[in-house]
């Protein structure tokens, strides 16, 4: 799938998935232990640095009339704060820092992944699954801690006719457990697909006749991917808020 020589151009080789390979940063013995510094480490570290640069260095002036960087931080703060408040209500604001962490990490990682030759950490299921399962587990635990057994009322539709309630409960239960899967695969799939498509078009650029079209297509898809990077971060975050709302207010 990854390596296919193309008809008449024997030099045309596609490696659209090579960009996702996890590599050790400093050679070493080549084996990737859990602690080995890899390109994952590098790009997650860069994401952290970007967040620090915008949110800590940008706001260090604490200016009442903000500088440009400070306003970026304030816009993201206000945007996420409003989203958490709108979706989960006032009592959900206690969890605002966690949601802000998830949102900023995904957004920064997505955007950094769009830099040519970079490594998109959020294109890996390992990363998004940890995020998705983490949200799922913490929201479920929170639901039981805050509501006790009545949290199960989330699956028992009192507004539905009594006959249908068990069936609906089963469907609700299944959809509840599918949440972390769809939550994480959506993000990784979107990022991976976009990057792979760009690489495939880049492979076509080796043929002189197609290369202008190919480069135009890369430009267009790149624009689309910038949009996707932001939208997927937003979607992940707002779904997290929706799940959190279920934990805080299981009554429909």
């Amino acid at each position: 799938m990854a390596t296919e020589t193309h008809g008449e151009e024997s030099g045309l080789v596609f490696h659209p998935l090579d960009q996702f390979i996890v590599k050790p940063l400093f050679g070493g013995d080549g084996v990737i232990h859990w602690y080995t510094p890899t390109n994952v480490t590098l790009w997650m570290g860069l994401a952290l640095l970007c967040i620090v640069a915008v949110f800590v260095l940008g706001s260090r002036g604490r200016a009442v009339v903000p500088t440009r960087t400070q306003s970026i931080g304030e816009i993201f703060y206000g945007f996420t704060h409003k989203m958490v408040e709108d979706v989960t209500g006032k009592d959900g604001l206690r969890y605002f820092p966690y949601i802000m962490t998830i949102f900023l990490f995904i957004l920064t990682a997505n955007l950094l992944g769009l830099i040519p030759m970079s490594f998109a950490t959020t294109s890996h299921v390992a990363v998004t699954a940890v995020l998705g399962v983490g949200v799922f587990l913490s929201v479920t635990l929170l639901g039981f801690i805050l509501n006790g057994p009545s949290f199960l009322g989330l699956f028992w539709m009192t507004s539905a006719p009594l006959v249908l309630r068990p069936i609906i409960a089963v469907i609700e239960l299944i959809s509840y457990f599918v949440r972390p899967v769809s939550h994480s695969i959506r993000l990784a799939g979107n990022i991976m697909a976009g990057h792979a498509v760009i690489k495939v078009f880049a492979g076509f650029a080796a043929i002189a006749a197609i290369s202008p079209v190919s480069i135009l297509a890369i430009t267009a898809i790149y624009g689309l991917e910038v949009l996707v990077a932001a939208i997927q971060a937003y979607v992940f975050t707002i779904l997290t808020c929706v799940y959190l709302k279920d934990a805080l207010h299981p009554q429909h």
Binding site: V22, H33, W34, Y35, T38, V40, T121, H124, A126, V127
Partner: peptide, 9 residues
């Protein structure tokens, strides 16, 4: 590579 990614995440 999963333990590595998860650890750094």
């Amino acid at each position: 590579t999963f333990p590595n990614q998860i650890f750094w995440l």
